[in-house]
C-alpha cells in the first residue's frame, strides 16, 4: 500500500498511468453526462408540485455534491503534502482549486435558477446557501493565496493549511438544514438512505452524480498533467516525451 502510494507519488509514473486513462475516462464522463441529461430532460416525469422545474435537480444536486466532495479531496491532498511532502500532492491541491471553484459556482447559480420558480426567490441568506457561498470563497482563497505567493518558498504549505482550515465549513454545509430553520430542503440524494423519490427519478440522478465524478477526475487529471510538464520540464523524460510530440 505504502509502496504503491510512493510510486504514484512520482510525477513520471503518474504521468504515464494517467496518459493511458485520460481519454477513456473523459469519453465515458461525456457520454454519461449527455445520456443523463437527455434522460432528465426527456424521460423523467415532472414532479407533482414543481412540475418540469424538477429537471434542474439533475444538474444542480451533482454539482453541489461535487463542490463539497472536491473540497474533501483537496483537503486530503493538502494533508498528504503537509505530512509526507509529496510534491505531486501539492500539484493536486493547486489543480483542483479552480475546478472546485467552477463547480461550486455552477451549484450556486443552478440553485438560484431552480429557486426562482420553486421558492419564488433567487437567493436567501439561509444557512445552506450562505455556507455554500463560503465554500466558493474558500476555493477562491486557495487560488488567490497561490497567485499572491507565486514561486515563494512555502507557498504549497500555506495553501495546504488554508485548505485544511476550510474543512470546518463542510459539516456546516451538510448539517445546516438540520441545525437551523432554512429555506433549503434536506438532502435529496444519498447512497446510504432510502431514496426520497421513486426509482424512475432517482436512477437518472445516480447516473448524473457518477458522470460528474468521472468528469471531475478526468479534468483534474488533465490539469495535473499540464502542471507536471511545467515543473519537470528540465528532466530527461519530459524532453523525450516532447521530442515525439
Amino acid at each position: 500500500m505504502l509502496n504503491w502510494f510512493h510510486r504514484l507519488g512520482s510525477p513520471k509514473t503518474f504521468f504515464e498511468i494517467s496518459g493511458r486513462w485520460q481519454v477513456p475516462l473523459l469519453s465515458l464522463a461525456v457520454l454519461m453526462l449527455a445520456g443523463g441529461a437527455a434522460w432528465a430532460l426527456l424521460f423523467v416525469p415532472p414532479d407533482y408540485q414543481q412540475g418540469n422545474s424538477v429537471r434542474i435537480m439533475y444538474i444542480h444536486v451533482p454539482a453541489a455534491i461535487l463542490a463539497q466532495s472536491g473540497y474533501v479531496m483537496m483537503a486530503g491532498a493538502a494533508a498528504v503534502f503537509l505530512i509526507w511532502r509529496i510534491k505531486l500532492a501539492d500539484v493536486a491541491v493547486k489543480c483542483v482549486a479552480p475546478l472546485g471553484a467552477s463547480i461550486t459556482f455552477l451549484a450556486l447559480v443552478t440553485g438560484a435558477i431552480w429557486g426562482k420558480p420553486t421558492w419564488g426567490t433567487w437567493w436567501v441568506w439561509d444557512a445552506r446557501l450562505t455556507s455554500t457561498l463560503v465554500l466558493f470563497f474558500l476555493y477562491i482563497g486557495v487560488i488567490a493565496l497561490r497567485s499572491a505567493m507565486d514561486r515563494q518558498a512555502g507557498v504549497g504549505r500555506a495553501c495546504a493549511i488554508l485548505a485544511l482550515v476550510g474543512v470546518v465549513n463542510l459539516p456546516v454545509i451538510k448539517y445546516s438544514v438540520d441545525w437551523w430553520y432554512s429555506l433549503h430542503q434536506p438532502a435529496s440524494f444519498s447512497l446510504t438512505e432510502k431514496p426520497s423519490m421513486p426509482i424512475e427519478m432517482w436512477l437518472p440522478l445516480l447516473v448524473m452524480v457518477i458522470a460528474y465524478y468521472l468528469f471531475f477526475f478526468s479534468v483534474w487529471m488533465m490539469r495535473i498533467r499540464n502542471e507536471i510538464l511545467v515543473r519537470e520540464k528540465n528532466t530527461d523524460w519530459v524532453k523525450q516525451w516532447l521530442a515525439v510530440r
Partner: peptide, 16 residues
C-alpha cells in the same frame, strides 16, 4: 416551453 419553466431549465442546462 416546459409549461413555462423552459427558460429556467434551459438557462441552467446551458450554463452547465
Amino acid at each position: 416551453y416546459m409549461d413555462g419553466h423552459g427558460i429556467y431549465i434551459w438557462a441552467a442546462y446551458g450554463l452547465t
